[in-house]
Design a protein around this nucleic acid. Structure first.
Lengths: 218, 218
DNA sequence: TTATAAATAAACCATTTGGTCAATTTACGA
DNA sequence: TCGTAAATTGACCAAATGGTTTATTTATAA
């Protein structure tokens, strides 16, 4: 049993360690030795499971993305109406698991590397594509196509900006403040309605419940 | 005349070279040797005018900020009404001098460094404070205080997000697309009006004229 | 023209980087 | 119990990093 198994386990361990290091020390401060230290292993062994530093960091970022993705899927499964789907996507990005200073640091580090490291570009592309495809459906059912496209872009931009700020502010950015901003952005094309308000409340609630569940499990 | 003068000249030269290097190679790829090469000088001499790499890069970013700041001042001087002032601020951030892939790269690099390098934090703080103070005045004269504060935050966030995307997209992000997004954000609290439309058109025009002027000069 | 101080750069240094390799430990199958 | 293949690591390497020191050029003031 210990043949292929241990390989997968180690790869996951080291990817997670790399991600933690990325959060703490940024791209600059994330060296192989530091990741190895974080994982409690030798540098040589880390490099035994990943051919290069770039491969390791790519894995780290895919890992982080997978976490976010899983959360999105769960929330979206609970969403029944278009409005609920929209808020599911937004709440995913504001969830206490993700919307944190250290997590934002890691992502900004990724962004800084994108222009120079091709494998990072692919990851970014995937992330954007997923967010867009999750938003565009429900938006189309509430708006004419052109406005739906515009709102999808504007919301994505806003989420990016919020994460950036979350990473930069010393004290981070409160979840509530971020939520208010996104709601304001929605107002641009979508008037307040009872449907919307109810969907918002429900998805916030679902997100809260999910957060408390994963807290208990850890 | 060549006493204190040359010192100032060299410092400016090297800061500009550092900024150029930052745009091309990111924070990771910006080493003292590379900056020296870009400046056509020796590494030792660069370090003669800046005590450390960190000091050099801080100067580079202050230099970049000064460029943006100068443009903002010129545009704001032309702005007479609240709406014109708002669009002056926004157009500054979309100006062809600034809203470019390589420039965005440099700023993202700065952002990635902020959590770990204290002098970068100060620069970021200054930039945010200036933008906010430029926006909050005209917004207050069009909106109740609470909404003005919110819109100031939302606009800042949107600009951040747009720059991020501009830096990440292979092909960059077109000025027009970015402008559409910002206009949509404005719609959230401020209805379309003749005043607004006129102000928008005028500031776009002023910005265009400015750009063509600085093109001729170079 | 010469003395002097600033500007510049070549050589050097300690440290760290990503990465290799050969040796050793571990653990499972027969 | 033993042999073998995988897991793990310490030692090592060349390259690059930020930074220092020392020597040399340059230019100015007297």
């Amino acid at each position: 049993m210990g043949r292929r198994n241990i390989s997968q386990i180690r790869r996951a361990e080291y990817a997670a360690a790399a991600y933690r290091t990325l959060m703490k020390h940024g791209l600059q401060g994330t060296s192989l030795s530091r990741v190895a230290e974080e994982a409690g292993a030798s540098k040589a062994n880390v490099l035994h499971y990943y051919q290069s530093k770039e491969a390791l960091l790519s894995a780290a970022l895919r890992y982080a993305n997978a976490v976010l993705c899983k959360e999105a899927i769960i929330l979206l499964r609970e969403a029944k109406t278009p409005w609920e789907r929209i808020y599911a996507v937004l709440e995913t990005n504001l969830s206490p698991t993700s919307f944190r200073t250290d997590v934002a640091h890691a992502w900004i580090s990724l962004c800084a590397g994108v222009p120079h490291i091709t494998s990072y570009q692919r990851i970014q592309t995937v992330i954007y594509a997923r967010m867009r495809s999750n938003l565009i459906g429900p938006l189309r059912s509430l708006l004419p196509e052109q406005d739906a496209n515009l709102m999808s872009d504007v919301l994505t931009t806003a989420v990016d900006g919020l994460w950036l700020r979350c990473g930069l502010s010393l004290d981070g950015l409160s979840q509530d403040a971020a939520r208010d901003q996104l709601d304001a952005v929605l107002d641009a094309r979508l008037p307040a309605s009872e449907d919307r308000q109810r969907a918002r409340d429900r998805m916030i609630d679902v997100s809260r419940i999910m957060a408390s569940m994963s807290n208990n499990r850890s």
